[in-house]
Simulated scan of single mutants.
Amino acid sequence: MDDLRTGLGRRQLRDDTLAAHCLAFCDALTTHHEGEDDGMFAQLLRERPDLADTVTKLEQDHGLIASILTQVRQLADRALEARGPDLETIGRELDGLAAIMESHFRYEERSIGEALDAEGDDTEWADTVLRFGEQVRPGL
């Protein structure tokens, strides 16, 4: 995202390049959050129901981030349709997204990390939640 914001600020990216980067970034972040919401968080709550408030907060953040990503996608789509992006508007959206993501990731690392670290050396639950040791098959 930093590369996108820097290129946008310096007007170094062509509209189609900017749009392609924005759309790829939006898709990757959306996929990541959907994976957490539907997979990792669900399993984490089965193993650690005491983290329900933390997971709820993180899922709310995901909703806010998804809303901003929708705005960025719409602006990027306009660039691809040759109507030209409003660079100032895209920049504000990316700045807001960066601030929320920074806060979100810090909270996620701190709250879940502290809870997991408190478990001591017993990592059996982490292996279940994070699926360590599972054979990952290509294409999955």
Rank of each mutant, 00 (worst) to 15 (best):
T6Q: 10
T6E: 15
L8P: 03
L8R: 03
L8K: 04
G9Y: 13
R11M: 12
R11Y: 05
R11Q: 14
R11T: 09
Q12Y: 01
R14L: 08
R14I: 06
R14C: 04
R14H: 05
D15Q: 04
T17D: 09
T17H: 12
L18K: 00
L18F: 08
L18V: 07
A19Y: 07
A19N: 09
A20I: 03
A20V: 02
A20G: 00
H21Y: 10
H21Q: 14
C22E: 03
C22Q: 09
L23G: 12
L23C: 08
L23H: 12
A24L: 04
F25M: 13
F25N: 03
C26Q: 02
C26M: 00
D27F: 04
D27S: 08
A28N: 01
H32K: 05
H33W: 14
H33L: 09
E34M: 14
E34H: 12
G35A: 11
G35K: 11
D37A: 09
D37V: 06
M40Y: 02
F41V: 05
A42I: 12
Q43D: 05
L44P: 00
L45Y: 02
L45A: 01
R46C: 10
R46N: 12
E47D: 06
E47A: 11
P49T: 04
P49E: 02
D53Y: 09
V55L: 11
K57R: 13
K57H: 11
L58V: 01
L58F: 12
E59F: 06
Q60R: 08
G63D: 15
I65D: 00
I65M: 04
A66H: 08
A66Q: 11
A66N: 09
S67K: 06
I68S: 02
T70W: 07
Q71S: 09
V72M: 09
R73C: 09
A76D: 08
A76I: 03
A76M: 07
A76Q: 06
R78S: 14
R78Y: 01
A79P: 12
A79T: 05
L80N: 05
E81W: 01
A82L: 10
A82I: 04
A82N: 11
G84K: 09
P85H: 07
P85Y: 06
L87I: 09
T89G: 02
T89K: 06
E93F: 10
E93G: 00
E93P: 03
L94S: 05
L94A: 03
D95H: 04
G96Q: 11
A99C: 07
M101D: 04
E102G: 15
H104P: 01
H104I: 02
E109A: 08
E109F: 12
E109C: 03
R110A: 15
I112A: 07
G113S: 03
L116D: 01
E119R: 07
E119I: 00
G120N: 06
G120E: 03
D121C: 04
D121A: 10
D122S: 13
D122K: 07
E124F: 02
A126W: 11
D127A: 15
T128H: 10
V129S: 00
V129W: 02
F132L: 11
E134Q: 14
R137K: 14
P138Y: 13
G139V: 00
